[in-house]
């Protein structure tokens, strides 16, 4: 295993080179993982049951946390935005201000972060445990594709459920803002919803939609990848779970900025 001796001055370059190659390898594997998932979404056999299972796992079981965080986000917005607007004497715009912040930005991002914490980490742990307990090998030797049972349905379910959960988050948030702005601070109900209708466009909704859809793909992609290529043992699963949550959260914010700058 003796490595060829390298002159000391060359060492840093050797290390940089090796790290770069490793990075490119990992990125290539990460990318082709997603491509393979996309291809298997449109080619049979489809695992409908696994997909429905994942809808339940990622979507249905995240409903409570989405409603809870949506409501409080809307209420906080209602409070803070009214305070700010009242300084300019423009409380009337509370409705559109709350709605636009939620629909364009906070809804997609916060819903995605919440689901990452609840379902993304669980997804990595579940697939990681299946890997270290040889359940993935068991599927493989049954001549069945673990990818089609575990990865594809999860990513597809993410793409389907994230926009729906974001919509729910937005609606609940708008009512949270209504509770604070109208019921508590005394703005008229007609103003709150009327101005919202005037100022919120379809393209705002579409911005939120595309964001949430891509977040759904990103979160489930990272979560399944980290689970699928988990390291050895229980520590491996713990590490992968943490990495998945951190990486998915960072990617959500980076991608959010990117989408915000290219979408109208």
């Amino acid at each position: 295993m003796a490595e060829p001796a390298v002159p000391v001055v060359v060492r840093p370059f050797e290390i940089i080179g090796r790290r770069t190659i490793e990075l490119i390898e990992v990125l290539g594997r990460f990318g082709s993982f997603f491509l393979l998932a996309l291809v298997s979404m449109v080619t049979p056999p489809f695992k409908t049951r696994a997909f429905v299972d994942r809808l339940h796992y990622i979507g249905y079981r995240s409903l409570l946390i989405i409603i809870l965080t949506g409501a409080f986000t809307g209420m906080v917005l209602g409070l803070q935005v009214s305070l700010t607007l009242s300084r300019f004497g423009s409380e009337a715009f509370l409705g559109p201000a709350v709605a636009l912040s939620l629909i364009r930005e906070l809804g997609p991002v916060l819903a995605a972060l919440m689901v990452t914490g609840r379902a993304g980490s669980a997804l990595t742990a579940e697939i990681g445990i299946m890997r270290i307990t040889e359940q993935i090998d068991a599927l493989t030797v049954m001549a069945l594709s673990p990818f089609r049972y575990l990865v594809t349905p999860s990513i597809l379910a993410g793409i389907v459920t994230f926009p729906l959960m974001t919509a729910l988050f937005d609606v609940v948030g708008i009512f949270g803002g209504y509770l604070v702005g109208v019921k508590l601070l005394g703005l008229s109900e007609g103003t709150y919803f009327g101005e919202m209708r005037t100022f919120v466009d379809l393209h705002d909704v579409m911005t939120g939609f595309w964001k949430s859809l891509s977040f759904g793909a990103i979160v489930t992609w990272v979560a399944t990848y980290k689970g699928f290529y988990v390291g050895h043992g229980a520590e491996g699963v713990a590490r992968a779970t943490t990495q998945a949550v951190v990486l998915a959260s960072v990617l959500i914010l980076v991608w959010d900025y990117f989408m915000g700058s290219i979408l109208p």
């Binding site: 307990t133 359940q135 068991a138």
Partner: peptide, 30 residues
Amino acid sequence: RQHYGVVFQGGALFDSLTCFDNVAFPLREK
């Protein structure tokens, strides 16, 4: 692999399925 049967070291049963469904799994899927 169509001709293989494998008993893994820890059993490698699918946690999310009952024992019945575990045994039925290869028949249902294949």
